[in-house]
């Protein structure tokens, strides 16, 4: 019991430290208002955590250009530059 607890604490500490080492780039934290961080949430909106970087970049570029129809993402993507989109995509791709 004691060792399980210690292991659990160690795990939490390591996991948290991993997160702490990579502060989200501008705009990234806001995405989880709609894109669930938790796998427990049932939503038609895709999770971004661990998703392929190029896939996120293409989706954002297509929403921004109008090549892909969105409900709110067309309006939101227009607020981000290419560099910001790249940084957000890389950050989410690296999350677990």
């Amino acid at each position: 019991m004691r060792s399980t607890l210690a292991a659990a604490i160690a795990y939490v500490t390591i996991a948290a430290a991993t997160v702490a080492s990579a502060e989200p780039p501008a705009g990234a934290a806001a995405c989880s208002g709609c894109h669930p961080s938790s796998a427990r949430v049932q939503s038609p909106v895709v999770r971004l955590v661990g998703r392929d970087r190029a896939e996120i970049v293409k989706a954002m570029q297509d929403f921004r250009s109008g090549a892909r129809a969105g409900t709110v993402m067309d309006r939101i993507a227009k607020g981000f530059t290419d560099a910001e989109i790249q940084a957000i995509a890389a950050w989410y791709a690296a999350q677990r």
């Binding site: 989880s32 208002g33 669930p36 961080s37 939503s43 038609p44 909106v45």
Partner: peptide, 13 residues
């Protein structure tokens, strides 16, 4: 439908 999904997502976060 998205409105309800948003509520589930944000209250979970």
């Amino acid at each position: 439908v998205l409105a309800e999904a948003w509520f589930r997502t944000i209250t979970t976060e």
